[in-house]
Design a protein around this nucleic acid. Structure first.
Length: 356
DNA sequence: AAGCCGGGGGT
DNA sequence: ACCCCAGGCTT
């Protein structure tokens, strides 16, 4: 696969990019003021596969509750997960919490200043480690997030398919080559900003781009073809049944999901196989005698790799509060822990939306 | 090397 | 309806 990097690359890329950044870059993101290692780290984890506009409110709420690495390390897992509910990729929250405890336990709460050590912490890969040291410490390190990938792939006309080694490997080499040896904090922010605001996936604003005359994709008129399209795969359809079980005082039975898999570590409505018998399942899992009440309108939810139809049944619990395993608890409706977004919608469904 | 993990937003 | 997004982990 041909790679065609611009000639005299390092400063020929960094200098015009930095000049553009001074005028058009994003200088008011919450994690930039103050720009502490802890805040940069949390922001970078939240921003993995998640857009800036989505992250901002979560970031501010998270910082208000967990203002430093010690507050995070000391917090209970459920509370951390609760602050993550709705953001997705919940392994990020579990890893963030584990890393905070590791930082306190083995690094005395002080962030390592080098990429290799940071990468030993759970949830921090090469790109996130690079972003943290560059943004928090001004230490030279390449980053390669989705924005930088697209910018560099177009600059050097890398036409390989994303996700393959033919794409990722040259991009890392080029990312290191272009990364400025001065103002590295601004450079890493600049290349992300360029990708996010000008060099967008569709309809890039090439005429406003400070690198237009260096861009090999532009020169070859193949900008729209980079990055190459991934081959689409069919998403299988699955179905589950969840139970809205209320006791006599209106409390809701929730179950903590296993740490890995869909919605890992989050509290959710008890889930049973789509074809399972509701009464038998409740007797076996919770020791509860129940009466299935009414089915609710099914919810369709799309995941990256499959489509899920969620059938929900409202269930009355006859006997009181037996729970046979340690993964289920009763919660008052006004004191629910964080639950996945589709489940939150189900739980909030008013009575008149029942599918009678 | 490829699959898994999610919710939100843009077009 | 489809695509992508401040990726990392697992197999």
């Amino acid at each position: 696969m041909p790679i065609d990097p611009p000639a005299d690359a390092p400063t020929a890329i960094a200098d015009p990019l930095l000049s553009w950044f001074d005028v058009h870059g994003r200088h008011d993101l919450p994690w930039q003021h103050p720009r502490t290692p802890y805040r940069v780290w949390v922001a970078e984890i939240m921003l993995q596969q998640t857009q800036v506009t989505t992250v901002i409110d979560y970031f501010n709420a998270f910082m208000a509750r967990f203002p430093d690495v010690y507050a995070l390390a000391e917090a209970a897992s459920d509370e951390v997960m609760g602050y993550w509910a709705g953001l997705g990729y919940y392994a990020r929250a579990r890893n963030l919490h584990a890393a905070a405890r590791e930082l306190v336990a083995t690094h005395d709460g002080v962030f390592p200043r080098d990429v290799e050590t940071l990468m030993t912490l759970p949830g921090i890969g090469r790109s996130t480690a690079g972003a943290v040291v560059a943004q928090a410490f001004g230490v030279w390190a390449p980053i390669l997030d989705g924005n930088a990938k697209r910018v560099i792939a177009r600059l050097a006309a890398v036409t390989a398919t994303p996700g393959t080694a033919a794409y990722e490997q040259p991009l890392w080499a080029l990312a290191a080559r272009y990364t400025s040896t001065h103002r590295v904090t601004d450079y890493t922010q600049a290349i992300m900003d360029l990708g996010a605001t000008l060099c967008t996936r569709r309809a890039p604003a090439c005429s406003a781009c400070p690198l237009e005359d260096r861009c090999q994709a532009r020169r070859k008129r193949i900008t729209a073809d980079i990055p190459a399209r991934r081959k689409k795969k069919a998403r299988p359809q699955r179905a589950v049944t969840v139970l809205v079980i209320e006791d006599e005082v209106g409390h809701l039975l929730l179950e903590k999901r296993p740490p890995s898999g869909i919605w890992g570590g989050l509290w959710s409505l008890p889930e049973i196989a789509a074809d399972a018998d509701i009464e038998a399942a409740c007797r076996e899992r919770f020791g509860l005698d129940v009466v299935p009440d009414v089915p609710m309108t099914p919810i369709e939810h799309g995941f990256t790799h499959f489509l899920l139809t969620i059938h929900a049944w409202r269930v009355r619990s006859l006997a009181a509060t037996r729970i046979m395993d340690g993964h289920a608890e009763w919660f008052a409706r006004d004191a629910l822990p964080g639950v996945p977004a589709p489940i939150a919608r189900l739980v909030d469904t008013p009575q008149h939306d029942l599918n009678l």
